[in-house]
Design a protein around this nucleic acid. Structure first.
Length: 475
DNA sequence: AGCCCTTTGAAGTGA
DNA sequence: TCACTTCAAAGGGCT
């Protein structure tokens, strides 16, 4: 069976991901719909309205047309065709270059695998010598190692790949807090972007424009702050919007795996307790969060002691330590004064990081397009925005959707590599079946009933006659 | 403060 | 296998 990912071995179930695609005839329609963003949005709005007003007939044309046909093998085949095409366009395989310009996501050959693409054992997997609590690495200058460096340099020319960066992941994985091995050779300063460039951010910020080399997308954060709506200063023209470089500071590219790369002499990463909301909110103290994370993942003898707030690296932004993340130092001090073992246990419980789910294709799409829609429409309420985005999602062409599915697949893959033991179940509050929050029981098509538009009108000030929100009527 | 709303998709659970 | 549930992001609204 052909796999989407030419790299093989991908069992992430991307095959069924395109079930929402439309059939061919509909596709043409959708392509025409996409001819203009404004038209698209207007169409989306119209379809929303029409659907809202006519759904009682349960024959909403727009919905019926947009909704993908039920799963069928033929459809799956088509989807696979599409995916295969996409895979071919991307030249498939994890070890190929970034599938899209502006997508500098390095799929480092199986970071958890000790083997290099050439089949040899990677140095990081071979030589980890732990002596007296410090970590030393040897045999850096092996052929394989150099090959790996060359690989990274080839795939990411701007990256000054040194031994440290290659070892850093293993180093962090073993959570050997600041050790010379981390510090010395890493020349990839992870100067945290003010917006906390997530290693997956290049994925998340994907858009069609991103695939046009040297053509910064107009709707990127440089235009409008997705949160505040305040226009942002544009990027210098000679600087990639994805890499917040200052001229001549190539080395300050945020490593896609930057959170893994321990740093020395770097300023403390900007702590944005408010404002920008990153897909993977960054924990504040790597040692506290990471080692607690490791505590939960690895046997105690493998977990180093906490080193309070000495920040020498970045935890994966998917790791969230809510409420306690800023109390780590205080809690550490408190635990020293507290002789109650239970308290410390509770602290440990609290410190347990929350690894968020990887974003699916639609979520990635939403993250990228939300700001755009918000900018085009005065609506700010996410529920309304999401409705529009949902329509737009269905209006996307197969290829466009396939790109997001691919990004989502890679994100899942990376997530799986980063957190091998993680399960979505871990994030279930109260366990399955015990609802964290009462969700409205959704009957088939209930979202299209009259109550929805009424509620929408009430909440979003939708125009009663035009069945759409007044401020956005121009859309 | 915390849940609701709203979207799609992934993943887990139970029958 | 299927149906159902939860969570992922977002942020204004509501209790």
């Amino acid at each position: 069976m052909p796999q989407l990912n030419g790299g093989g071995g991908d069992d992430l179930g991307a095959n069924d991901e395109l079930i929402s695609f439309k059939d061919e005839g509909e596709q043409e329609e959708k392509i025409s719909e996409n001819s203009s963003a404004e038209r698209d949005l207007a169409d989306v709005k119209s379809s929303l309205v029409n659907e809202s007003e006519t759904n009682q007939n349960s024959s909403s044309d727009s919905e019926a047309e947009r909704r993908p046909p039920p799963r069928s093998e033929s459809f799956r085949d088509k989807s696979r065709e599409s995916l295969e095409e996409a895979a071919k366009r991307q030249d498939g395989g994890l070890f190929k270059g970034p599938p899209y310009p502006g997508y500098p996501f390095i799929m480092i050959p199986d970071l958890t695998s000790p083997y290099l693409p050439n089949g040899s054992l990677s140095p990081t997997a071979r030589t980890l010598h732990i002596q007296s609590g410090s970590t030393h690495y040897s045999a850096y200058k092996t052929i394989e190692h150099q090959i790996a460096i060359q690989y990274l340099q080839m795939k990411w020319p701007l990256l000054d790949v040194q031994a440290g960066s290659l070892q850093s992941r293993q180093a962090l994985k073993d959570a050997r807090s600041p050790s010379p091995a981390h510090i010395v050779s890493n020349k990839v300063p992870v100067v945290q972007h003010p917006h906390h460039v997530h290693p997956l951010t290049p994925l998340i910020t994907y858009s069609n424009e991103h695939f046009t080399p040297g053509n910064p997308p107009p709707h990127l954060p440089a235009d409008v702050d997705p949160k505040t709506g305040i226009p942002r200063p544009p990027h210098p023209p000679d600087i990639s919007p994805y890499y917040p470089l200052s001229p001549g500071t190539v080395g300050q590219i945020p490593h896609p795996l930057g959170w893994l790369v321990p740093q020395q002499g770097q300023p403390v990463y900007p702590i944005t307790t408010g404002g920008f909301r990153h897909p993977y909110p960054t924990a504040l103290t790597v040692n506290a969060s990471m080692s607690s994370f490791l505590s939960s993942r690895f046997p105690p003898h493998m977990v180093p002691p906490h080193h309070t707030l000495h920040t020498t690296g970045i935890p994966h932004p998917a790791i969230v330590t809510p409420t306690v993340k800023q109390e780590s130092s205080q809690s550490d001090v408190a635990s020293l004064h507290s002789s109650k073992h239970q308290d410390s246990k509770k602290e440990e419980e609290k410190k347990k990081p929350h690894i968020k789910k990887p974003l699916n294709a639609f979520m990635l799409y939403m993250k990228e397009m939300r700001a755009k829609v918000v900018a085009e429409c005065t609506l700010k309420e996410s529920a309304a925005i999401n409705q529009i985005l949902g329509r737009r999602w269905h209006a996307l062409s197969r290829e466009e959707q396939a790109k997001y599915y691919e990004l989502a697949r890679k994100e899942r893959q990376l997530h799986m590599q980063l957190y091998p033991g993680w399960s979505a179940r871990d994030n279930y509050v109260g366990g399955y079946g015990k609802k964290k929050k009462r969700k409205r029981d959704k009957q088939p098509g209930e979202t299209n009933d009259l109550s929805a538009p009424k509620k929408c009108r009430a909440r979003f000030g939708l125009d009663q006659q035009n069945n759409w929100c007044g401020p956005c009527s121009s859309l």
